[in-house]
């Protein structure tokens, strides 16, 4: 079988498996509260659930649409299905896949990148599942250590630590591209500090600015060459 036929078959099976896994996970996740409610002797209060959804769920629905549109091209088919099933996208899966891509030197949209991304998301998800399973098993002895006052500032700053390292990794090669969104976002948060609680919603305009600048630079390079 030649490479293209193999990849077409691989891609087709990925979508079949991805859709089946998403559907089964969805049914189990929505079904679990009803099953648990049944065991506890009280089913969910659906009117309260609808009210709750209207108060907080709408924001997360919009956020999910944005995440799907932005991250699916970064992750490819296999990585995309897995990432949306396993969650923790911004704080782990996306940076993890980008780091793997950087190390492997693959380009977005290529079959190699699809494979690296899938491997990365799967390994990352299995790590989280293992750490959490071990942690839950050892919850009693681990709790005093993990919850000790001294360690709390460290765990509270996992995300800044992650983005500090990733910022150096990406900015050093693209400093001209990074200056504008970084400056605009910094000024925006300084002048309108209430936006800090909505940081994730500002990723899209910031990314759009960076993509716009990248496009101008790409066109300029194309015109010169």
């Amino acid at each position: 079988m030649d490479k293209n036929t193999y990849l077409e078959q691989y891609d087709r099976t990925t979508h079949v498996l991805g859709r089946a896994a998403s559907l089964i996970t969805l049914v189990m996740l929505v079904g679990a509260p009803f099953l648990i409610g049944f065991l506890l002797g009280a089913l969910p209060d659906l009117s309260a659930a609808v009210k709750g959804f209207l108060s907080v769920g709408i924001i997360w629905t919009v956020s999910s649409v944005v995440e799907f549109l932005v991250y699916t091209p970064m992750l490819g088919a296999g990585g995309g299905y897995l990432a949306f099933i396993t969650g923790n996208l911004i704080n782990m899966k996306i940076p993890c896949a980008m780091n793997a891509r950087e190390i492997a030197g693959t380009q977005a949209g290529t079959p190699e990148n699809e494979i690296i991304s899938t491997l990365s998301i799967a390994a990352s998800s299995l790590t989280t599942i293992t750490v959490l399973a071990v942690g839950v098993l050892l919850l009693v002895p681990l709790q005093p250590i993990l919850q000790s006052e001294a360690l709390q500032p460290g765990f509270a700053n996992v995300v800044p630590a992650l983005f500090g390292a990733m910022a150096y990794q990406y900015f050093r090669r693209n400093i001209r591209l990074a200056v504008v969104p970084l400056t605009i976002m910094t000024l925006l948060f300084i002048l309108v500090p209430s936006l800090i609680s909505q940081t994730s919603l500002l990723i899209l305009p910031s990314g759009a600015i960076a993509i716009g600048l990248a496009y101008l630079s790409w066109r300029k390079k194309g015109a010169e060459s």
């Binding site: 380009q107 949209g109 983005f163 990406y170 948060f189 300084i190 790409w218």
Partner: peptide
């Protein structure tokens, strides 16, 4: 003109990181 898809993904990620770093400084 090859290569913009890859550049766009890098740019999107730079936008993401810039947003968070900006929020820390703004905070």
């Amino acid at each position: 003109k090859p290569g913009f898809g890859d550049m766009a993904m890098t740019a999107m990620f730079i936008g993401l990181v810039s947003t968070y770093i900006g929020s820390y400084i703004g905070g």
